[in-house]
Each structure stands twice: as structure tokens, then as C-alpha cells.
Design a protein around this nucleic acid. Structure first.
Lengths: 133, 133
DNA sequence: CTACACCCTGAAGCAACTACAGGGTCAAGC
DNA sequence: GCTTGACCCTGTAGTTGCTTCAGGGTGTAG
């Protein structure tokens, strides 16, 4: 299959496919006589894997590790579990950060009395001590 | 004050201060005879504003707008409110996305029976249909 | 035979910094 | 008076994960 077909089969941009090849995440496929990339089922499977991992929020580095691990089927699942666990912790941290941010911002927004900027509580919060420069 | 003092007073990296100047967020300060940047109270106030806005998660573009608005004290607070509201919506969207991600990942992780990679549910989830390439 | 959709490469752009390389300046201590 | 070390300067490149662009070639339908 050509790059466009592979891309649409995996809901990926053509450019992203080429990008994955460039950074060594996806093996360079064979080429047709006219220098078009010719992909096979293995490429499709691998790209699907990458996309699903990305959809779960794994970084490209984590995806790379997961791919390596998935190739070595005899190995213990521990490393895979570890990567996913770290990722989950990271997501929890992000959610916590965003929630704190949200409540702070919501508090600021709630205090806005819709007057002029001069007595805008939002601006005041950002530049305390009246120094609204 | 010198750049290092300004930076530590606002919990900012020196490089970040210079970066803000470069992108036009912070006005270029006067220079000493030895070409050191010499900041005043107005710079300190402005950088504090920027940092607080950044801490609340506003993008640099939003900060730029907020700064412009805060300079025009006679104007209505509406635009400020609008920027903050949009930002809040965006944060809510991100929290929602991350929560969905979290539950999906947590489900995948919970199914791991800590065996070998060959029957690892995590890998299986990523590469369904047994094509763990 | 000519449109038009698709493919190619390589470089640059995005956010918001951070980290270097390769220098200059300044105060303290010996 | 000279060195050490902390600070300052500029300019460029790196980070993540792509997207976009310029400037081409290929393949096929009408």
C-alpha cells in the first residue's frame, strides 16, 4: 500500500508517517520503481500500535520502548507495566495541576464585577499592590 | 536592578527574562556602561504580572493581550473576562480529556497479569488481533 | 494531452522555553 | 596586582510532536 492508504487506514497524516520513519519509529519500507513508499501488513500493524499508544498519551520515547518490549515476547511484562504505571502517575499529576489551576482561575473570574479595567479584579489579581502596569 | 535580581525576585530564569524581551513581552531596559541590563520597578511589576498570568496557565499570546488591556484602565473589563473565560473552558476540556485517558489507561493497566510479554494485556490492547509486531 | 490527485525531499515553523558556546565584567581574597 | 568565581553578554541550537511549505515528479481519467 502507498503512504496515503496507510495513513488513512490509521487515521494519521501522511507527513506524520514520514516523520515517524525519519525518527526511526517506523522502518523504511520498500520503494516502487517510481520511488513511492510501498508498505506491507507489518507496517500497518506497527503504525496502528504507535497510534494507539499515542492516543493513550504515551510519549514517542515511551512508544519506542513499548515497541521494543513487544518484540521480545518471551520477556516479563514488568517493564511494560512500569512504563504504563509511570505514565498513569504523570497523568494524575497533570489532572491535579489542572484542577488546582481551574479552581484558582474560576475564583478570579467569579470576582469580576464587569466594570472597567481600572477596578477589574482579574487584572488586580495578576498585578497586586495596585501596580497595574 | 540587574537581570539576576529581577529573575530571582520573580522566580524566573534569567534566560526566560531575556526571552521575554526578545519576543517583545518585556520592554528592553536601560543598559549600564558595561552593557548590563538595568531594570526598574516598572519592569518588576510587568514581569510579575506575566509570571502570575503564566502560572494561571495563560498562553503568552493571552498574556500579551491581558497586558495591553491592563494598560488601558478606562476600558471595559469585558475583554479581560472573555480571555479568562475562554481559558477556563480550555482547561475544562483538558481535564476532561485527561480523565478519559486516565480511565482508559487504568483499565489497561488493571488487566495486566504480570506474566510474559507474549500474553501481556497492555501490549495486546495496543496491538489487537494478535499482531504484536 | 492536460488536469488533478497523489507522491517525493528538505527545510522551516509552532510553544515556551532551556542549554549551550564563547566571550566580557566585577568584587573579593591572596 | 592577579586570580578566582559569580555574574553578565550575544547568538544559536535543542526540546516535543508534529505541520506547513517550496519546489518538484508520477499516474490516471477524461
Amino acid at each position: 500500500m502507498k503512504i496515503g492508504e496507510l495513513a488513512s487506514a490509521t487515521a494519521t497524516n501522511v507527513e506524520t508517517v514520514r516523520y515517524y520513519e525519519k525518527i526511526g519509529l517506523l522502518a523504511p519500507p520498500a520503494r516502487t520503481s517510481s520511488n513511492y513508499r510501498a508498505y506491507g501488513a507489518d507496517h500497518l500493524a506497527r503504525l496502528s500500535f504507535i497510534r494507539r499508544a499515542r492516543d493513550l498519551g504515551f510519549t514517542l520515547d515511551a512508544v519506542r520502548e513499548l515497541l521494543t518490549l513487544s518484540d521480545d515476547t518471551g520477556q516479563s511484562c514488568e517493564a511494560v507495566d512500569g512504563i504504563a504505571s509511570i505514565h498513569l502517575t504523570e497523568i494524575d499529576r497533570k489532572i491535579g495541576d489542572l484542577k488546582a489551576l481551574r479552581s484558582e482561575l474560576s475564583r478570579v473570574l467569579g470576582s469580576c464585577s464587569h466594570g472597567t479595567v481600572a477596578d477589574c479584579k482579574i487584572i488586580e489579581t495578576l498585578a497586586p499592590r495596585g501596580e497595574a502596569v
